[in-house]
Design a protein around this nucleic acid. Structure first.
Length: 911
RNA sequence: GCCGGGAUGGUGAAAUUGGUAGACACGCAAGACUUAAAAUCUUGUGAACAUUUGUUCGUGCGGGUUCAAGUCCCGCUCCUGGCACCA
């Protein structure tokens, strides 16, 4: 064999792995386990581009490394296969989304296998398969059948709550529930009808149905959760989103807010993602207190504040336009103005409201509130800078210490009273003179004593809307009797998606499932018509891989106890406030009910940076079919046009391919520089329309999968954003050829030497072993590739073809470039996969040096190098250094102030 | 506005506790092999000046700490990600 035949070899080993099921995880509970997972991909129609595998390659390297180290490795892949694009395509073409999805997955798997990933394909899961979503529905049922107990801080079965109600009503219980839950006694409960009981329980369930203001996206015909809306537009598709009041399923994730926040401290995650989750949860510690409304007996305005210490600075109050008291307290004179304002504010889209942040608007209600400390009468206004959804939807305005209140006060000429000076409270009766922190504590205990308020923690995070008025999602296992939701029986799962004639809403605006024939239970009760959101399946899939074919449980308890949770999770940081929060929430829930033994799903996470596209441009002379090379373009009037990056090499256009690219290019003319056509470049997102998409299959065809893997790693640190540029790929390709040549003689025949090993070769090898172990554990894959190059270069220079050295060498390169290493391992006379050949032990003895070459500096400037034995005494070094003529020249008789000798580091002389 | 991340040759980058800045590659240049090209190999390649040793400058900008700073501290500029009327 003259040269390495990468295509044939790669195919050979991919077939070998598949045939021998080399990378199947075993349920061998004796072995230490390692679970490496990539974020669940959505199989899009465009297939994988060269940016997608970046993280997959990294996790694959870790998985293979851990396997060689003797771990039982779980490294699966599957598909988050419910989702909007397949459904949008179905709407346009009438094709069932299951068919498109199936095709896309097929293509994804082909592409993934082509790269040679060590996935356990036996464990592949798809969220749109009934055998999978049966368990998504089952978990939904558990969520419906549970409530959140703030006393024990955990989710508990609803039966426990019912017992409470029977014994003591709901007055003493600390449970997460709807705002409008009325209190009742045990006796009341006993006399409620079953339906009344169900209505009450619904206010406590973790999966609950309620009327909520939702993000409605008319273009998609569905509601969206907060994390799916960006700046007033839908994240997918960029359609406008409006606020609408609708009956919706929600998840009481807000009950878990404190634990979701606290749990972050125990996770080994990138700090920015943790910070994003902290901001999203938005904890603020403060107090809630009530202001009486003047001339109304029982009306109070509740406010939340983080600065009770500024209470004496309250000069007016502001309610959100949607606040329920607005209609009741507005005086006759102000009625018209208030109604007009509320109407405008309500019709204003979220989008408009955001863009007009700086504009102050509001109107006086005519009503007054009583200041609880001073008894003063203060005006009550409404203004849309107060958000209905946060806190109590009302604020006590302290214009002296709050920018927004101040802007409002100045605009409407309301009074301002200074209460804080130099971080001390002033003009505030019993609080005067106190530092802010103490004043807050004192004010809180005062309001608690007086019974007008209490200390309170508030969270920004809202409950998550769980219904989607779409077809391609999990049906909700619920039916309705007199508008009250009831669960199906467990043995009725999975509730499969019905066939429909069209994937559109009905004429009456009902979701697509309303089109299904007989979408009812056997008894004739109507089934729920909305489906679950995209994040349902991905909130628990990491546990399914542990036991993917179990038909009796979502995961076997023993298996889960062994695999615990994900040791390494690699994916993009764009899921920070969506998937990564929801999956933590479901994990905590399942933990509370005792179904799993961990309360966090992903112990360590790494975010890979996005690979951007590097677009190429050609410059067409205006009005002609003539293209001018980049550096000559300023002499002409030109149009800059995207050109397919696949026909450009090192920014030089392949003119023949360009002529064939599009028919109109066939007779194009070119103005060249130095005989070449040079293209312009720009960094943009990889997309079809920019002609900058690079398909990994094409790269593999040309260079091989091992080269692609090495090159993606060599590009730079994993977390960094970087443009894809094939310019450097030759380097990694050449490296593999060099590696191959180490094992072959000049005639191209395989030839390795037995016997004695060269000390220098041994040192080169062990330096590499040490470095690669360090790098993999620190996720620094780019430096490993350099290390391999250095090692192979050294061994080439040494003409080393020692069998023992080369055997170790291929074992450390194998996680990165598995195909070529398998082949070499086999040529070395071994049977079976190199992935089962263990990891070479690093021996520090082999890298020990007898000498150290000191850089010698004078006044911090490097002047010469001098070699000494590693254990030379300082005196000896000092003497030799001072005797060095180069150093003497720099000292030139100046007095030596100080001589710094750091053993085996540096020598510095200060003169 | 608030909170992160970053800035090093022509390019991608490296420098693990402060200790020879630019490892390893790409590109470029020169040479070898070849009728020629490709492939491969060798040598050089931060900048400026001297060009035989050599000297000075140099990690976004301005200060500081230190024998010694890409690395630590203070102040700025630019790029980038996230959040944003959250009381």
């Amino acid at each position: 064999m003259a040269e390495y035949q990468f295509r044939a070899t790669e195919k050979k080993w991919q077939a070998f792995w598949e045939k021998n099921q080399t990378f199947n995880a075993k349920d061998d509970f004796q072995k230490p386990k390692y679970y490496a997972l990539d974020m669940f991909p959505y199989p899009s129609g465009a297939g994988l581009h060269v940016g997608h595998p970046l993280g997959y390659i990294a996790s694959d390297i870790v998985a293979r490394f851990k396997k060689q180290q003797g771990f039982n490795v779980l490294h699966p892949m599957g598909f988050d296969s419910f989702g909007l694009p397949a459904e949008q395509y179905a709407i346009q073409t009438g094709q069932h989304p299951a068919i498109t999805t199936e095709q896309n997955i097929k293509r994804y798997i082909e592409q993934l296998k082509n790269i040679g990933f060590a996935y356990d394909w036996k464990r592949e899961v798809r969220t749109s398969e009934p055998s999978f979503y049966k368990w998504t529905q089952w978990i939904f049922m558990q969520l419906f059948n549970s409530w959140y107990d703030f006393t024990d801080n955990k989710a508990r079965p609803i039966s426990v709550l019912i017992e409470h109600f029977e014994k003591a009503g709901n007055q003493l219980i600390k449970a997460a529930c709807d705002e409008d839950t009325e209190s009742f006694k045990a006796n009341d409960w006993l006399h409620f009808s079953d339906e009344e009981k169900q209505k009450i329980l619904l206010k406590y369930r973790i999966a609950y149905l309620s009327e909520a203001i939702v993000n409605w996206c008319p273009a998609l015909g569905t509601v969206l959760s907060n994390d799916e809306v960006k700046d007033g537009y839908s994240e997918r598709g960029g359609h406008p989103v409006e606020r609408k009041k609708m009956m919706q399923w929600s998840m009481r994730i807000s009950a878990f807010a404190e634990r979701l926040l606290e749990g972050l401290n125990r996770l080994d995650w990138p700090e920015p993602v943790k910070e994003m989750q902290r901001n999203w949860i938005g904890k603020s510690v403060g107090a809630e207190l009530s202001f009486e409304v003047a001339d109304y007996q029982n009306q109070e305005i509740k406010v939340f504040t983080t600065r009770v210490d500024t209470i004496y600075g309250v000069t007016f109050m502001v309610l959100a336009p949607e606040h329920e008291l607005v209609a009741q307290i507005t005086t006759a004179e102000q009625k018209e103005a208030v109604e007009e304002y509320v109407k405008v504010a309500k019709n204003r889209s979220e989008r408009e409201r955001m863009t007009e942040v700086k504009r102050v608007s509001g109107v006086f209600t005519g009503a007054y509130a009583i200041h609880p400390f001073t008894g003063e009468k203060i005006q009550v206004w409404i203004g849309d800078y107060v958000l209905a959804g946060y806190g109590t939807g009302a604020v006590m305005a302290v214009p002296s210490d709050d920018e927004r209140d101040l802007a409002f006060a100045q605009h409407f000429n309301l009074p301002v009273r200074e209460v804080v000076e130099n971080d001390k409270i002033v003009n505030s009766d019993f609080l005067t003179g106190l530092p802010i922190k103490e004043a807050i504590a004192k004010a809180v205990s005062y309001i608690e004593e007086k019974g007008i308020g209490k200390g309170k923690v508030n969270y920004r995070m809202r409950d998550a809307i769980f219904s989607r008025q779409r077809y391609w999602g999990e049906p909700v296992p619920v039916y309705f009797k007199n508008d009250i939701p009831y669960l199906l029986e467990e043995d009725q799962l999975p509730l499969e998606l019905p066939e429909v004639d069209k994937y559109l809403p009905t004429e009456d605006g009902e979701p697509p499932l309303a089109r299904a024939k007989n979408w009812k239970t056997e008894e004739g009760y109507e089934l729920e018509k909305s489906t679950m959101p995209g994040w349902a399946g991905s909130s628990w899939y990491m546990f399914r891989y542990m036991d993917p074919h179990n038909s009796g449980a979502f995961v076997d308890q023993n298996k889960q106890e062994y695999w615990k949770n994900v040791d390494l999770y690699i994916g993009g940081s764009e899921h920070a406030t969506g998937h990564l929060l929801y999956s933590r929430f479901w994990t905590k829930f399942l933990f509370d009910l005792g179904y799993i033994t961990v309360d966090e799903p992903f112990q360590k996470m790494i975010n890979q940076g996005m690979i951007q596209g590097r677009s190429n441009f050609v410059y067409r002379v205006e009005g002609k079919n003539t293209y001018v090379s980049k550096n000559l373009k300023d002499d002409y009037t030109t149009q800059m046009l995207h050109v397919d990056v696949n026909i450009v090499f090192n920014d030089e256009l392949d003119i023949e391919k360009f002529r064939r690219w599009r028919p109109e290019n066939a007779d194009a003319e070119f103005i060249l520089e130095d005989g070449k056509y040079i293209c312009g470049t720009e960094i943009e997102k990889m997309s079809k329309s920019k002609h900058n998409v690079v398909n990994p299959d094409d790269v593999i065809e040309q260079y091989g999968a091992d080269t692609l893997r090495l090159y993606e790693m060599f590009l730079g640190p994993l977390e960094q954003f970087k443009p894809w540029n094939t310019n450097g790929i030759d380097g990694t390709s050449k490296f593999l050829k060099k590696l191959w040549r180490l094992f072959h003689n000049e005639k191209g025949e395989f030839e390795v030497a037995e016997g004695e090993v060269d000390k220098k070769a041994l040192k080169a090898l062990h330096l590499a072993i040490q470095k690669v172990e360090y790098d993999i554990e620190h996720f620094s894959f780019n430096t490993s590739v350099s290390t391999f190059m250095i090692c192979v270069n050294t061994l080439t220079d040494l003409k080393c073809n020692n069998k023992a050295i080369l055997s170790d060498l291929v074992r450390i390169i194998a996680p990165y470039a598995p195909h070529i290493c398998e082949e070499l391992w086999e040529l070395l006379g071994n049977k079976g996969s190199i992935s089962e050949a263990g990891w070479p032990a690093f021996n520090p003895e082999f890298i020990k040096e007898n000498d150290f070459t000191y850089p010698v500096s004078v006044n911090g400037k490097h002047r010469d190098n001098m070699t000494f034995a590693v254990n030379s005494p300082k005196e000896e070094i000092e003497k030799a250094v001072l005797a060095n003529p180069v150093i003497q020249k720099w000292i030139e008789g100046k007095p030596i102030k100080k001589m710094i000798i750091v053993p085996n580091k540096i020598v510095n002389i200060v003169v």
